Every structure is written in structure tokens, then in C-alpha cells.
Simulated scan of single mutants.
Amino acid sequence: MISFSIVIPFYNGSEFIMETISSILNQDNKQRSFTFEVIIVNDGSDKENADFIYQKTKHLECISLYDKENGGLMNALNYGVAKSKGDYVIIIGQDDMLSENHLNSISDIIQEGGIDVIFNDALYYSNERATNFLVRGDKIPKISNEPYDNFINCAKWNFIVSTGICIKREVLLDKPFVEQYKNQGEWLTWLRILREHSLYFNNNTKALYRRHNANMTNDLFSRFSLNNMKYNLHVNLYFYKLSYRGSREKCIFISKLCKDIIVYLYRSFFGGGRTHKKIFSKNWGS
């Protein structure tokens, strides 16, 4: 039987966390094809939020709550993975939700064998309802059987949706989330993993990605700042370092670098530093 560890990093997220937990507890498991545990990592929340999550989860046997000092999103994810016991780790944000067939659909894929990473798309969730808009949609490229091809495509643009992503625990222990950038290490981590490991796009389920005023939609990525540019440059250099460094890889590196510089200069001088189209991502505390 397949065992999952569902890791939820938590930081002052009392407003929506119970909906997230409910979406997990309501998973369809009529076939009894899997077991799961839920690991909540309280990453230095204030007393009110810490007390809330403790009181709400203390009676739920499948949930383990861990308290730690604030270290940022990537650190909280690594902490949760280290505490996990399942064969596979599933990541979900404190304000997002899984569809009821999420674990079932992943179980079916795992039983086919040979897959290390399974990701899905997500629907934006706003005003207490799911929209018809996908986070990635038709921008997700065709997934290759060759890990290096997926690595190349991810270097061009981060097409991976992290909400509900499923990764072999042993892979994450070997290649943990990159913590150098406290709240922005996912793209670097995907490159690190996809360089060597198989990838599968699960089109049989959609997670729900919540948009609200407190998430990073209106903060971290709504402004193309110098810090964003530095992060993108790091991603670009990281990709090139891991790549074969041939002519194709050089072209990708140079084109991405030029694009980032042009976008940064344009938005700095003509757009007040703000993007014309918001890039949606997750919120986390500093």
C-alpha cells in the first residue's frame, strides 16, 4: 500500500488552514489503495495562530504538528520532509486545497512504476469559489521521458505547479529545497531534481490555489525588483552549471539574461517597478 506524507508549512495562516485540512481528510479512498499522514510545520507563528492550530488539530490522529523558529518557507518544507514517514511527500500551502480524487489519481500513476515526481495544474480559487482559470494551463510543455529535456524546459520557464506536487521522499532527502533564498527556492529545487529524475503531469486532478490579499500575489512577485532579478540570475546560473553547457544551453542562458535585464529596466523606468500582469505565487512571513 502506498503511503503519503502531506506537508503543510504554517505561518499565521489560521484564516484558511482548516479548509486545507478538510480537503485532505475528505480524500476518496474507497479502494483503500493508500494511507496518509499530515505534517504541519508551524514556522514561528504568533501565539494566537500557534494556539489556534494546536487546538484545532490535537484530536486528529493523522496530523502531527511541529513548532519551530521562523526560518522561511523552504526551511519549513525541509523540516517537514525530515519528519515525514511516507514513501511519497505531497506539498500544499496553508491556504490551498486538494480535490477529493487527488491522492487516488496519484496512487494510480505510482502503481504504474518508474515515476519520481508527479505534478498537476491548479485552478485559481477566489471569493470562496473555484474559477475557470488555470495557474499554468496550456503553458505546460509536453513532458518528456528524458529527464534532461524536462530540465531544459523548466530552465526556460518554471512550469511546475507546487500546489499538490508529489515527490518521492528519498528524492527530497537527497535534493532538499534550496534555502539560500528564504521564500523563493522552489524553482532552483525543481531544476535540481528534474536534472536526474522522471516527471509526470497528472491531468486527472486539479488543486485549488487560493488568491487573497495576504498572499504573495500582492507582494513578492507583484513587483519585478532588483531582488527578483538577482534570483532569476541565480536560477539561470544554476541551470547553466548543471547543464551540458552546449550551444543550446548557452543560447537559453543568454536569452534569459537579456530578457530579465530588459524587463527590469523597462519596468523600473516606465512602469514604476510594477508588472503589468501580476505573477501569482505564495505568501510567507519574513
Rank of each mutant, 00 (worst) to 15 (best):
M1Y: 02
M1K: 02
S5K: 05
V7K: 10
I8E: 11
F10G: 15
N12A: 14
F16N: 13
S22W: 02
R32E: 15
F34N: 09
F36R: 01
V38A: 07
V41I: 15
N42E: 01
N42A: 06
D46G: 08
E48A: 15
N49W: 01
A50F: 03
A50Y: 05
D51N: 15
I53H: 04
Q55A: 12
K56I: 11
K56F: 03
T57K: 03
C62S: 15
I63F: 09
S64V: 07
D67N: 13
E69Y: 05
N75D: 13
N78K: 01
Y79D: 10
V81L: 04
V81Q: 02
S84M: 01
K85R: 11
G86M: 04
D87V: 04
D87K: 12
M97H: 03
H102K: 08
S105I: 06
D108T: 08
I109P: 11
I110W: 04
G113R: 03
I115Y: 00
D116W: 01
F119D: 04
L123N: 11
A130N: 02
T131P: 06
V135W: 00
R136Y: 00
S144H: 03
S144R: 10
D149W: 05
D149R: 09
A155W: 03
N158W: 03
I160R: 00
I160L: 07
I165V: 14
V171E: 06
L172K: 08
L173G: 06
K182C: 12
Q184A: 15
G185D: 09
W187N: 11
T189I: 03
R195H: 12
E196K: 15
F201C: 05
N203E: 12
N203C: 13
N204G: 13
T205F: 07
Y209D: 11
R211E: 12
H212S: 14
N213K: 11
N215Y: 00
M216I: 01
T217F: 13
N218T: 07
D219T: 10
D219I: 12
F221C: 12
S222N: 12
F224S: 03
F224Q: 00
M229L: 13
K230G: 02
L233W: 08
L233C: 11
L237C: 08
Y240K: 02
Y240Q: 00
Y240H: 06
G246P: 01
C251T: 13
C251W: 00
I262C: 09
Y264S: 08
G271E: 03
K278V: 13
N283C: 14
N283E: 08
W284L: 11
S286N: 14
